[in-house]
Nucleic acid binder design. Structure first.
Lengths: 141, 141
DNA sequence: AAAATATTGATAATGATTATCAATAGCGGA
DNA sequence: TCCGCTATTGATAATCATTATCAATATTTT
């Protein structure tokens, strides 16, 4: 996922790529491995755009989430964290380390089985969210 | 899970079964199929104990969570919901219907495979949380 | 350039949860 | 039984992330 890519999707949805939105997107693009809070996005974005406000950050993040450019997740149960969603849109999962609090992504997809069973029972599955809590290999020594 | 059962675990943990705690527990026991918010627990509990306060509800719920009598979950991302945890302590999962917002439990456990793979990579999995979002059979017609 | 519209940023409002603290309840010992 | 100690409670204030409001600014359209 790169800026040009996002740019098209923005204008398709009727949004302009303002400097503020560009700054916010660049923060997310430059931190693809992280899961940032709105405040963290604000702080990073202010390095390029010192006057950007927190309201703009929240608004922009919400817009990007609603057009599936970002994923919004709550891990620790106090604030939301945002990340660029995978280009291939594969559902992906998380391991949250209970010691160092790092968040590691799991690309595997063993859920298809389960979903197939549920759909056989009449459910229609649109999205799924799987989190493991435990210790990462570093902390598990 | 019944009251006598819980009573023992409470006193083992050094807590007394006060009338307030009893009222709160009875609410949870009588709503095993639901996932109640703190406010809903308060309203129900007040039918037996009109003067019980919200602070007591939060405190008691937290205590019960910390001794694994209750599970605490956030589904819609605005407030926590509480339920009696399974007696057999099987990890269980949820389907949240995007139309009627009902929460249905899934007793299946296809996660063992995944966990085994993760543990082979050095992780130690302590807990997991799996939610499906979609339409329940009733809403999927 | 003027008018209409979209976007922004400061700040107030919201709402769930947590912290505080004085009042009360319940227990153990004299 | 009465006293004193500790646990518990309930009212309320504080917290804090997020959302709403709204005037100011920027951008597009006419």
């Amino acid at each position: 996922m790169n800026l040009d890519n996002v740019k098209v999707r923005l204008s398709n949805a009727g949004y302009k790529l303002t400097p503020q939105r560009k700054a916010i997107l660049e923060v997310l693009i430059n931190n693809q491995d992280k899961h940032l809070t709105a405040e963290e996005v604000l702080n990073e974005a202010r390095r390029e755009m010192p006057n950007i406000g927190i309201a703009t950050v929240y608004r922009t993040l919400d817009n990007l989430v609603s057009m599936d450019i970002l994923d919004k997740n709550m891990f620790e149960g106090e604030r939301y964290r945002y990340e660029l969603s995978d280009a291939d849109n594969q559902p992906h999962h998380h391991i949250i380390c209970l010691k160092c609090n790092c968040i590691i992504e799991v690309e595997e997809d063993l859920l298809h089985n389960m979903e197939a069973q549920l759909e056989a029972k009449g459910f229609k599955i649109i999205d799924r969210e799987l989190k493991f809590f435990g210790y990462c290999p570093k902390c598990n020594k």
